[in-house]
Design a protein around this nucleic acid. Structure first.
Length: 583
RNA sequence: GUUUCCGUGGCCUAAUGGAUAAGGCACUGGCCUCCGAAGCCAGUCAUGUGGGUUCGAAUCCCACCGGAAACACCA
């Protein structure tokens, strides 16, 4: 916030540098540690190091520069105090003015606080990418929450975002499911809980396929009929895929996710095969059929060594692969939309494939190939660094997790707040449970493995979404008791406590945090910020009376509480986490 | 073998190259006649190893150690 103040300062420092023959642009601002008093600091070491006059060591030179600059900036308006300490020029804001500016800006912007005007071209983010006929597990959750959150953050930073979902609706897993269904569950219909039903049948077909050679043979025959275009099987496929999509839709609604464009794997299979033929014609791809697959030897083409390896783009029997379909999909995206960036939220294990794909597109001559970006994230493991495996039955199904967490949250709400209306209770429990589940998925860096364990997933204390939500509820409680309309212009005439200043400072950081998170595709920055803001708010809450405050402090603090609540809610919402008003 | 990612207290995590490395969990002890105790306060404990770059390194570079992953027909 308050770039104008920083601009003024920068100009002043630049003029100073010019007059002294020092390089311009060496001075950046950061905040002063050890708060209590709000201000910005300029470390002068880079400037000191750039000074051609080397008679003084850098730290001493920095201190000398700070002292000279201190006098120059002494009469800038809006600052209460300037000091030169250990090579830093520290400027302390006039606290009242500062408080009024921050709080008024937040109250005025409301839900839009922290978001920027739309600017620039649109960005597509592909995420979620589930397979039909299969259950969703905690690994899928990280993808959905990370992808959705990145979309929210990009939107808040001013980008137009297209949310894309690429559905795996064909392949062996689908054939297995249908073959099992037709043989053992002919005519059955999904109940209300479609995902659970589909998942149970998938597990059953998977088990049969692994254990029963007869069933395996049956599935192979079934696959043959599918390939031959059997009308009955295709009709069943359409129907069962529809069930799966309905199930996904239920989950997305529960998670608060939506998509603007859905691509199906089946849509790009044929065009992929056609493209492969073209690649063979143009000499980029080598056709090794019938013994070997169709490949592109990228290292050979590029003269690199063990860097791009060999991309296999069509099986030796002519059937399609992952890579076969990725190429037409990427093209389709750029044909349909004028994109500034095409982002793929896909786990880190596919890094080489993503690298190969964008290189192939580049070699094919598409000028936009460089706009493709793989947003890699690490997988979700179990304690002891155990990978979840459906074969070992160690996967944690999303369904079970949500159910369990909601149940647990409901018990806690009932215990903490027994007088609530049962419907409100249920609503609160869902928001708390979903928040608790989502938060760990975005609270660590994308490249770090998330370890899932039931204890911490169901723990609503400490650094967690419920902790942050609780701060919102406390703030709301004060506002409810205040029970008067809150003006959007703040005035701070009273002597402020350090906790108040800290809170204001933290609130003011949200816009910058969002911009940084957007630039780096890191929701974790906001997750950390929101928690810290909640901590500072709790500090304020325990140390600073609001409704019982004397004189003008009362209204000022009410306004501050409102501003804090807005910042907390806006931070959470970019993470896809809702804020209950009571809990 | 090649490449990528990770390594911070007992466990998990944070820190635009900048000031005294910040939190959470767990553990121990305290705090509800006072705006909601899902909270607050207090206490013990940390940058894998060795070099280098820099005025300054958890952060950048090199080597090594430890863990994970990818590397021609699964996605």
């Amino acid at each position: 916030m308050f770039y104008d103040v920083k601009d003024q300062l920068t100009q002043l420092i630049d003029r100073f540098c010019n007059s002294r023959g020092l390089p311009v642009g060496k001075v950046e601002f950061r905040s002063i540690p050890f708060s209590g008093e709000w201000g910005i600091a300029a470390p002068l070491f880079p400037l000191a190091a750039a000074d051609p006059d080397k008679t003084l060591p850098v730290p001493k030179k920095a201190q000398a520069l700070a002292e000279v600059l201190k006098d120059q900036v002494a009469d800038l308006p809006g600052f209460s105090r300037v000091e030169a300490v250990r090579g830093y020029l520290n400027l302390y804001f006039e606290p009242r003015q500062y408080a009024e500016r921050v709080v008024s800006a937040v109250l005025k912007a409301g839900e839009a606080f922290g978001t920027r005007e739309k600017q620039g071209k649109q960005v597509m983010v592909e995420y979620s990418n589930p397979n039909t006929h299969k259950p969703l597990h905690v690994g899928h959750l990280r993808n959905v929450i990370l992808g959705g959150s990145v979309c929210n953050i990009l939107e808040a930073s001013g980008k137009k975002v297209i949310r894309a979902n690429y559905i795996g609706d064909i392949g062996l897993h689908v054939i297995k499911w249908m073959c099992n269904y037709e043989t053992f569950h002919q005519g059955e219909q999904p109940g209300k809980d479609i995902m659970r039903w589909m998942a149970d049948l998938y597990a059953e077909s998977d088990r049969r396929f692994a254990d029963d050679p007869d069933f395996q043979a049956q599935v192979r025959a079934y696959f043959g009929r599918w390939d031959a275009g059997d009308a009955q099987i295709h009709a069943l496929w359409e129907k069962t895929r529809g069930w799966s999509m309905q199930g996904f839709q239920q989950v997305y609604e529960l998670l608060g996710e939506h998509f603007d464009r859905i691509y199906f794997e089946s849509d790009v299979e044929e065009s992929g095969k056609v493209l492969v033929e073209g690649l063979i014609q143009s000499g980029l791809a080598e056709d090794g059929r019938p013994e070997n697959p169709v490949i592109i030897d990228l290292d050979k083409k590029l003269g690199t060594k063990e860097e791009y390896r060999v991309a296999v783009i069509l099986r030796s029997d002519g059937t399609s692969l992952y890579a076969t379909k990725e190429i037409p999909l990427a093209i389709m995206k750029f044909e349909e939309y004028d994109l500034d960036q095409s982002i793929y939220v896909i786990d880190v294990r596919q890094s080489l494939h993503m690298k190969q794909m964008s290189k192939v597109l580049e070699l094919m001559g598409y000028p936009w190939a460089g706009k493709i970006r793989h947003l890699a994230y690490e997988i979700v493991n179990l304690p002891g660094n155990v990978t979840m495996s459906s074969r070992d039955g160690t996967v944690v199904l999303l369904d079970d997790l949500i159910r369990e967490a909601t149940q647990r949250a409901l018990e806690v709400v009932r215990e903490k707040n027994p007088s609530l209306d049962p419907e409100v209770m249920q609503d609160v429990a869902e928001k708390v449970a979903l928040g608790a589940i989502k938060y760990p998925m975005v609270a660590r860096e994308n490249t770090k493995i998330v370890t899932f364990d039931w204890d911490s997933a169901l723990d609503f204390n400490g650094q967690s979404a419920p902790y942050i939500q609780y701060a919102v509820v406390r703030a709301n409680s004060i506002l409810r008791r205040f029970n008067q309309p809150v003006p959007s212009e703040a005035a701070f005439g009273h002597e402020m406590l350090p906790v108040e200043v800290n809170l204001i400072e933290k609130i003011s950081q949200l816009p910058d945090v969002i911009l940084k998170a957007a630039a780096e595709f890191k929701p974790s920055l906001i997750a950390t910020y929101a928690f810290e803001l909640a901590q500072v708010f709790n500090d304020f809450y325990t140390q600073c009376p609001v409704l019982s405050a004397e004189g003008s402090a009362r209204l000022s603090r009410v306004l501050l509480v409102k501003a804090a609540k807005i910042a907390l809610e806006n931070g959470l919402s970019t993470l896809g986490i809702q804020s209950p008003q009571v809990m």
